[in-house]
Design a protein around this nucleic acid. Structure first.
Lengths: 228, 228
DNA sequence: ACTAAAAAGAGAGCACTGCTCTTGCTTTGG
DNA sequence: CCAAAGCAAGAGCAGTGCTCTCTTTTTAGT
């Protein structure tokens, strides 16, 4: 077991969690750029150098927060999918999109951390890949179900894109037609375009009734993938 | 004239430009977070406090760079529109999208500055609004031209979105049908979703032939607005 | 059960940051 | 011609990430 190694290992887990919690608090309050190791340590009543026993650098702390954020938004998407279980594919798609949007507005700085500009010089380790895929996998699942249920309207696929479309489909969802997989990836990115523009203020003085606007946009994305 | 105020005013303009140039250099090299007033001053052979005569704070320098970046990408979009003058609306739309994408990859840190996460605590002054509108205005212009030329396929507009759609159209392009204006705003945000995801590494191990993928995506956005 | 090794905390220190304040010098305009 | 405004320089403050050394505590092997 992981608790087999006595009191020290247990303490380590607790301290690590406390550091992440405090860091998340500061992240939510001030954003990633103002997240300070020294401030975290100060708040926890420890000296700054002691913190380096748990996270070798500020970037490592950020990486931990990034993974947690991906898991958090992924969980929100999965929960929305499960709640809208009985509804049709389009309704479930929209429900998931709205859940992601709501998560983004509840955790703006964490959203910025994972979907905004990457911290300069920072390179995400491969550890972040699986958590980062969760939202995409939810969307893939909805389309997959639709394929076995009411079917899909096949999106267009020009000849020049066919090789890449087949490669992508084989990579991310071998049971989906290449045209659908391609449209899905595009819709996935476009959804975050809508959310990001709204969250980062680009809709200022442009869109007012943003909830309705987004709901309609999400529906059109679903149509673009072929859901009906 | 602006040169009426003698040598001192001229020097001020030159020094201001030199500061912005050096700042842009550092921005391109290391990103906004590592842009340091002291380093800029050092490189220019002046002491850091002297720089505050030109920009009252780091944020003010960033604001100047943001405005320049918006103007730069706007200019790129306008140039692409003018070059593709003879082509049809869809071709011109795609040309503009590709120009924006190319600008983004030529100036990744400037792109992150204006379309990525806003600097925490930073609030964009209204001075940035007109430059920020230029890309959108180019897209509006293409759709407007299409309306007077080959016509448009009207995008769907649900009843619940009609009031907001009419508000938006009146605000940004009174000569466009509300359904078109709404689809246009969405397509505008979605295009930056595609570009941002590619630029910020979300397509890592997902999309390989990204140029072809984007070209097709831009075309589908055009279709979503009703261009044909 | 004892001891060598590993882990953890504390503190000082380095090089850097944004920003302020004071002190002189130079250009400008009445 | 001379006061006023503009500008540069330097010192200094409070903060940052990170490293190094020193001491104490806990673990693990014989």
């Amino acid at each position: 077991m992981s608790t087999a190694h006595g009191a020290r290992a247990r303490a380590r887990i607790e301290v690590t969690a406390a550091i992440k919690d405090e860091a998340r608090k500061q992240l939510a309050a001030e954003g990633a750029a103002k997240l300070s190791l020294r401030a975290v340590a100060r708040e926890l009543g420890m000296v700054s150098s002691a913190l380096y026993r748990y996270f070798p650098s500020r970037d490592d702390l950020l990486t931990a927060l990034i993974i947690d954020a991906y898991d958090s938004v992924g969980e929100a998407a999965e929960a929305a999918r499960d709640t809208a279980d009985a509804a049709g594919p389009v309704q479930r798609w929209i429900a998931v999109c709205e859940a992601v949007r709501e998560w983004a507005f509840a955790h703006p700085h964490e959203y910025a951390l994972i979907y905004g500009s990457p911290v300069p010089g920072y390179i995400a380790p491969d550890t972040t890949v699986p958590p980062a895929s969760r939202v995409g996998l939810v969307l893939i699942g909805i389309v997959r179900d639709a394929l076995r249920g009411p079917g899909l309207t096949m999106p267009p696929l020009p000849a020049e894109l066919r090789p890449e479309a087949e490669r992508m489909a084989a990579d991310i969802a071998p049971d989906l037609p290449p045209a659908v997989a391609t449209a899905l990836v595009a819709a996935w990115a476009q959804m975050f375009g809508l959310i990001g523009f709204e969250l980062f203020g680009q809709f200022h003085r442009v869109v007012e009734d943003r909830g309705t606007f987004f709901r309609h946009g999400a529906g059109r994305l679903a149509a673009g993938v072929g859901l009906r």
